[in-house]
Amino acid sequence: MSDFQIRLSGSGGQGLQLAAEILAGAMLSVGKRVAQSISYEPTSRGGLSRSDLVIGDEAVDYPLVTDLDCLLILDQIAVDGSLDIIRPSTVVLMDSDRVTAAPKVECKLVSMALVRAAQGIGNVRTANIIALSALAELSGFCQAATLRQMVEERMPPRFVALNLDALAKGIELARSAGSPE
C-alpha cells in the first residue's frame, strides 16, 4: 500500500481531528508512515473542519491529499471542498441526515445515519469514532483490532468503554450497508 489517502471532514466540534489522530496512531502501530494535515475555521464550534491522512510504507513525500481513496463527510458544509479530489474509485461515507445534497460526482457512495447511531449508543460525540470504524470496515485500510487498541491507549479512561461501543457500532453499520456502490 503506498500513498493511501483519507479525508475525515465535517464541521468543527465533531471530533474529526481526534479521529484522525487515532487513525494516524493506528497506522504507525502497524509499521506505516503517515502525514496528517488539518484545515479548520477560526471558530471553536462549527465551520468547515477536516483532517487528511496520507499513508505509505515509506516516508510520505508529498504530505497533502490529491486523490482520495476514502472520504468521510459528516456535515453538508464539507461537501463542496472535496469535489475536486474525489475519484470514481473513492469510497465516500456520508451522514444520511447531516448531508442533504450528496456530492454530484462519480464515486462509491455509502450513506449511513452515523450521528443518529451515536445518539443511540448514548453520546452524540462518538459519531467520529463510529464513522472511522465504519469507513475502515468498508474499505479495509485498518484492522478493527488495531483501532480498538489505539482507542484504549489514547482515550481518557472514562471514555474508553463508550468508544469501544462506537467502534463496534461502526462495524455493524458497515456490514449491514454492504459493499460500496
Partner: peptide, 9 residues
Amino acid sequence: EVIGHLVET
C-alpha cells in the same frame, strides 16, 4: 501553517 500543524512519522 501547513508545516506547523502537519503531523508526520
